[in-house]
Design a binder for these strands. Structure first.
Lengths: 155, 155
DNA sequence: TCATGATCGATGCAGTTGCATAGACACAGA
DNA sequence: TCTGTGTCTATGCAACTGCATCGATCATGA
């Protein structure tokens, strides 16, 4: 299936362009931005929710948050309604960093996608891609072992 | 840019579905298949060429080939025309394994893509994605540090 | 022929990921 | 209340990745 192999390669290529751009500016990896951005627009979130939104594996996110907390970008707050859990919130520094990353990130995305497709085709692409990870209405989220990256939920 | 974030997430989701499927059957990870497949249809290749076709990082491919050679799936042959280099060839076992993987792989791809898009849309998607990693004709392949995953070349 | 610079591929090391599982708590039913 | 089952998050360990760099070879031009 052509679409499959191109999906893999196109993402690899685009991701690489963007990560190199961030690295070249001495900025942290992409997921840091994604986490900060989710937190900024949705407010403090439970790790579980972040995990769904970002399609990250649970253990992976857990350690990502460790690193980000150590860097002072997010903080873990206890969660009174469920003492197993916690809330993750972006700190001032976290928000500041996100704003600093954005222009670099945006430029790189433009180079990797916008410049190659143009407005209309980019939108068409987005529409098609959306259908690849929308949860199908009736799916009980159990086709894949629990806690695995793409399992459970809308994301 | 919507297309960007969906590209990342859709690929993540689809890749995860496929890798889980392979793992569930006790089969090796995806790249092993990809390497075997390239070798099968193109004959023995230099690591450099494999690297371009698969968009893998040089050091990464080098060690992937170590593992596959150790598993008896590929063999390194010396290259008389360039003694720095070598040719990688699939072994009988390698070819056999590829054939064994294929049905599982195909089914997973169908579930991750075909079932969600249908023939025509999948083709449209492939076309759009193709434009994201084609090399632009005049590019001297130097926008990114040497040997970095997506650098250099057509792929 | 020799120096210079580029290319091919490997590798030490530190950082990250994946797997399996643990520990703490929630929730439902006996 | 107690017990069993499921959920939320963390973590030990092994495998993999990324970075920087090395050694070997090639290619070019003086």
């Amino acid at each position: 299936m052509l679409a499959w192999s191109r999906l893999i390669r196109a993402q690899r290529a685009a991701l690489c362009v963007v990560e190199q751009a961030l690295k070249a500016e001495g900025l942290p990896p992409l997921e840091w931005y994604d986490v900060l951005w989710e937190l900024e627009r949705a407010g403090p979130l439970r790790p579980r929710d972040l995990q769904e939104r970002l399609l990250l594996a649970q253990y992976n996110l857990s350690r990502l948050l460790d690193r980000m907390a150590e860097a002072g970008l997010v903080e873990r707050r206890s969660c009174s309604s469920d003492r197993r859990g916690q809330f993750i919130a972006a700190t001032k520094d976290g928000l500041k960093l996100r704003r600093r990353i954005w222009p670099v990130y945006a430029r790189a995305i433009e180079a990797a996608i916008g410049a190659r497709l143009g407005e209309a085709d980019a939108e068409a692409l987005a529409t098609l891609l959306g259908r690849l990870y929308e949860t199908t209405p009736a799916a009980p989220a159990a086709s894949v072992p629990r806690g695995s990256p793409a399992s459970s939920g809308r994301a």
